[in-house]
Design a protein around this nucleic acid. Structure first.
Lengths: 354, 354
DNA sequence: GTGAAAGCGCTAACAC
DNA sequence: GTGTTAGCGCTTTCAC
């Protein structure tokens, strides 16, 4: 492309020059030093005469030199960096954790490299690739799961931390994890609805599998029902994906049939928001006709109308502990640990005592 | 790290092997062919005997070989890829455009490489780096601005498209842009408020600069006021950043002083949501006491209570046109173009006729 | 059809 | 303090 572009005004050699990608060799030649000296300056290594350094920096500036990261990574043994592999873009809950992780990683003296993956991609595969291409010293999986992937995890040569999913079952000496006690937290949410006098409670959640967060939250729901001498009828569990749209559709559909309940526990705040809108669109009121409580504690619940009750997962604590666990493993070669944090019930105007 | 880990059970050579990063050389040796043959198989080049190909693939499979992207990029001249540089993570409006861009780019036969940048980073610098490291054939800037950066843009050797910010002023033959007519769209929003009988209108927006989107939206606001024989008092313009929190704080503060108006135009939906919550938290009703209309048309406005009126920027059209412009420039070497799309007024329960 | 060999731009010994 | 040089893992001529 550029070729053609330049052919149009080939008399202009200035532009030709501006487009050239300067290499370390060019900079060395232009500043009259060897390439290793340039490399030393670029990487802030010691033992370069102040004067030489200045000259090299000037040339670098003048020609807009940027080192080629491919070449750097190809050669470099280790880069003092930590990689965070995030599963699922556009997830408000993860976004808030990620932000805090970045800060903690940098505070710990490491660079932070974030890899965003969509749902279709394999996070462990991506991590393996990052490890040997970017030479990172540790990996944090945000929203990924290591369950049943022991074999692949073995192939990752640096300490790992699974954030928000337990990896205790993998039982690997380089894989830690940090989770919220989903079962207890979900129980708290439903307990709260019972306390507020609700008896006819619906649950909006994802596909229940024994070992994932959803399965655990479901267990917590059952625990609460059991403790209150009740059982959750299967027709009161609505399955949907983690989006407002899906939550809306699921609850719209059931309310459309004339079915009624006095409260909903949604296993994520975005589902809860969809559900809330479905309720008001049906002409019902929150919380007068139906109460609703979510899960996660994303910022948005505070700004919704009415303010949504939720069980907050402690984002900053998750972030800090994840990074702390990883740094310990990297720096002190500490053994893997699996920590569990508690959720926090946040009351909101969306739940009414009946 | 891994060293230490392995020393713990150095008798286990299996794990040692699993952690090794296989290179193209290893695969060549293990399958008894030359490295160029492996390279051909990996890249799907023709002229490899079916049998040889099969053998190589088997070995690759067996040893979980993944090519090193650094080495690949270092050597490769061009990669049939397009880079999208997104400024500002966690922006729902951009996220929806990005998703559609990815699809369009892949449909056009190119790979899509997304680079996420925070507000502090320089998007043009990042693009330049991506160009010579990843060998992309074109760049789309989502949310970046090329204004006043002609010099740096010249250094990018491939066609570019600025999405959502005009780059007409740069007047470069390889830089196109696609924008919404912010001025007209903002005018629509305020016109609508006037039509609904509002006279005391507040505006919540960002820092006004002559050439950016905010400045244009502000001009549109002034246009509408002028057309309705009025002027916007300076004390009715509230400046805040693009977040719910900022919108909330700004409107809370002013309502707290007892100041009142009958309608608010917020220059983004997230600001509008913050403002909406500030209004209801003050004990006022939307739309009975104060009407509100936002800007952007993110999904969330449909799920808010009450449904927020907004001016929708046509995300899919922006995405499609951006990609189309770029593909044309890449494939047919078409000259730069600057397109302007229209916004669409979306009525909502948040605006009341008075 | 397939292999040998020359680099891509850089880092890190090692020599001076 | 600074320069020379050997690769990192790959693609890509160019021979055969």
């Amino acid at each position: 492309m550029c070729r053609v572009r330049f052919r149009k005004d080939s008399g202009n050699s200035m532009r030709q020059q501006e487009t050239k990608n300067f290499t370390i060799k060019d900079i060395a030649r232009l500043s009259g030093v060897g390439i290793s000296t340039v490399s030393r300056v670029v990487n802030g290594h010691p033992y370069v005469k102040e004067e030489t350094k200045k000259r090299v920096l000037t040339v670098m500036e003048e020609y807009h030199y940027t080192p080629n990261a491919n070449a750097k990574n190809l050669k470099q043994i280790s880069a003092n960096a930590i990689s965070v592999v995030v599963r699922g873009t556009n997830n408000a809950f993860f976004a808030s954790i990620l932000e805090k992780m970045e800060r903690a990683i940098e505070a710990g003296g490491f660079q932070c490299r974030v890899t965003y993956l969509d749902e279709r991609s394999d996070e462990i595969d991506a991590a393996r690739r990052v490890c040997n291409e970017k030479k990172v010293q540790g990996v944090i999986f945000l929203g990924g799961s290591g369950v049943g992937r022991e074999k692949e995890l073995e192939a990752i040569p640096v300490p790992c931390v699974f954030s928000t999913e337990s990896a205790a079952a993998a039982n690997l000496e380089h894989v830690s994890s940090i989770t919220v006690d989903d079962r207890a937290a979900a129980k708290q949410a439903v307990d709260y609805l019972f306390e507020m006098g609700h008896r006819d409670i619906a649950v909006l959640g994802g596909v229940r599998e024994a070992l994932n967060n959803i399965g655990l939250r479901y267990q917590g729901v059952l625990d609460s029902f059991r403790e209150h001498g009740m059982t959750l009828p299967e027709e009161r569990y609505f399955t949907c994906l983690f989006s407002m749209e899906e939550g809306y559709n699921a609850i719209s559909r059931v309310l459309g049939t004339g079915e009624r309940f006095t409260a909903v526990f949604a296993m994520s705040d975005v589902m809860a928001i969809g559900a809330a809108k479905a309720i008001t669109d049906t002409g019902l009121s929150i919380p007068d006709d139906i109460s609703i409580i979510g899960y996660d504690g994303i910022d948005l619940v505070r700004y919704y109308n009415p303010t949504l009750a939720t069980v907050r997962q402690p984002a900053e604590e998750i972030a800090e502990k994840s990074v702390a666990l990883l740094l310990e493993a990297i720096e002190n070669d500490s053994p893997a640990r699996h920590m569990t944090l508690g959720g926090e019930l946040i009351a909101g105007a969306s739940v009414k005592r009946i």
